[in-house]
């Protein structure tokens, strides 16, 4: 589903002395079936932005269109289930949403809420637990007996089990070890290749470079840049103002330019960097 923001403004505690703008006149499009990364400093409004997509928050003004569903300030809380079934959301530290007495029931919770039969939900739970790289034998255990990394995977399985078309990920790998991190990110990439739309909030620019096809930069509630990562990471203005940091490969390439290398565009992934260095060394 294509997701469109039109002049979306969100104010926390409007009409009070503590009012503050979470989003300030944001307009942009998130393309269908693409992997879009949203970056920005802590408190910049990334999480506020994505909470509008499944109407957990409503705009103070402006409209958001998700597929054929339009969310306006007047949208009421009734009948939001179809929207929330289509847009799955993995929150920061999603393991805090676990509550059932077995892993299986917890994964089944989402699909059942969205009207799936118990049999379908159970089937989905068995499929999802394998998808997130855990053993089926864990299904009978209590989620609170699992390790932190396993809990994270169960929580992600619980969101994926409802089979959403769009998946929003709010720093899904924060606090995971490097191997777990890569497995989870690869999983999301493969989901996208199977036709899902992925929206990833992250502070990790290497993840952006390695996985995203589109990126948006948010600063103080405003959208300040959008485009393919290759181009956004070459935006000198943003880099100079410290509104964006470079992925490791690009930062390395930048230092190489001081040693006589020259790049038409900074390579942002390790592969691009390797190819470029090889070419330039052989060319000389």
């Amino acid at each position: 589903m294509e997701i469109t923001f039109e002049h979306v403004t969100h104010s926390y505690n409007p009409n009070s002395p503590t009012a503050n703008l979470g989003l300030d006149d944001v307009s942009f499009k998130i393309q269908d079936k693409k992997f879009t990364a949203i970056v920005g400093q802590t408190g910049s409004g990334k999480s506020t932005l994505v909470r509008h997509i499944n109407a957990l928050l409503k705009p103070t003004s402006g409209t958001i269109t998700v597929g054929d569903r339009v969310i306006t300030p007047e949208t009421n809380n009734k009948n939001l289930k179809p929207l929330r079934k289509q847009v799955g959301m993995v929150f920061q530290f999603p393991e805090s949403q676990l509550f059932e007495d077995t892993v299986e029931k917890d994964i089944m919770f989402g699909p059942m809420n969205f009207g799936a039969s118990a049999d379908d939900a159970r089937e989905s739970a068995h499929k999802m637990i394998k998808l997130v790289g855990l053993d089926e034998s864990l299904l009978e255990q209590s989620p609170f007996d699992l390790s932190g990394g396993q809990m994270r995977r169960v929580a992600i399985a619980g969101v994926l089990a409802s089979d959403p078309e769009t998946i929003i990920l709010d720093e899904p790998t924060a606090g995971l070890d490097p191997v777990g991190r890569q497995e989870i990110m690869d999983l999301f990439k493969s989901l996208q290749q199977d036709g899902k739309t992925i929206i990833l909030i992250t502070h990790n620019m290497d993840d952006v470079a390695n996985y995203a096809e589109e990126m948006a930069v948010i600063h103080r509630g405003k959208l300040i840049a959008q485009g393919i990562p290759q181009e956004v990471f070459n935006n000198q203005e943003l880099l100079k103002e410290d509104l964006l940091t470079l992925p490791k490969s690009a930062a390395f390439a930048k230092e190489l330019t001081e040693k006589g290398f020259s790049f038409e565009k900074l390579p942002i992934t390790i592969n691009e960097l390797g190819t470029e260095i090889e070419q330039q060394l052989n060319g000389d």
Partner: peptide, 19 residues
């Protein structure tokens, strides 16, 4: 804060509070 966060997470999984 924690309550709001958990409520949001469960809402996203299709819970309707007050229905």
């Amino acid at each position: 804060d924690e309550t709001t966060k958990i409520m949001d997470a469960q809402r996203a999984r299709g819970v309707d509070f007050g229905e």
